[in-house]
Design a binder for these strands. Structure first.
Lengths: 122, 122
DNA sequence: CTAAGACCTGACACTGACGTCAGAGGCAAG
DNA sequence: CTTGCCTCTGACGTCAGTGTCAGGTCTTAG
């Protein structure tokens, strides 16, 4: 499939896909005229990349862990594996942070609701 | 206290505090010579601001919800309250996203660990 | 064949929370 | 008084993922 098709199936912009390739996250075969072609598998790969972006990984970090995705059986991915674990932990810490923030907001919401209930009985 | 003191107590940079003031998140009284002075309470306020930043709120959004922090009893903070609830929900969705990402990483980690165990029995 | 739409590269714009630097003034201790 | 540290304003730099535009080529339906 061509880039527009992949973009719509994976739910990202064409621009993003070209950027991913530039960053080494995605590869494509080129037609003689230079147009990018992708296999169906790439859809899932793009979704994974999006997921990692959403989790706060940078392109550079994603590149670093990709060996674990592409060849988990290779012994050469020690650093990649290390990085993978690091990122998992970072995400866990981030989740904790968000939970604390949500608690803070919940508290604020409760306090405000209480005042509202008093001020306008209906 | 002056700005350096507040910065170190709240664990942020002096630059950030000036930026917060510029954005309307923080106020200061000025000495005749123009130096900023803060009360002890501001430490907590800065910590709250940091917490909200960490939760992904932008300066503009924090400004919008501040009425709920500063005067929860005022009826004029309807929009602020609305926004507060919106942000709480956004954070919840973000947490879900991170949980999914963490699951994905955990899966990758397990797969890689399994391969490693096979390849290098010790 | 032709027109429309998809694709190409390259480049600049943007956003936002700061870092950092320059040049100048403030303040407490010795 | 002076030395050294803190503070001031203003301005430009940064990073990263994308939007967007320009100028040109490809592909495909009719």
């Amino acid at each position: 499939m061509r880039i527009g098709e992949l973009a719509s199936q994976a739910g990202v912009s064409v621009r993003s896909l070209r950027y991913y390739e530039e960053q080494g996250l995605l590869t494509s075969t080129r037609s003689p005229s230079g147009q990018r072609h992708y296999t169906d598998d790439e859809v899932e790969r793009v979704r994974l990349i999006q997921c990692l972006y959403a989790a706060g990984l940078s392109s550079r970090t994603i590149v670093e862990v990709l060996p674990c995705v592409d060849s988990p059986s290779e012994r050469n991915s020690d650093e990649a594996f290390e990085r993978l674990v690091q990122e998992r932990d970072r995400i866990s810490r981030h989740i904790d942070e968000l939970l604390r923030a949500r608690d803070a907001l919940d508290l604020l919401i409760d306090v405000n609701r209480a005042h509202r209930a008093q001020l306008t009985p209906r």
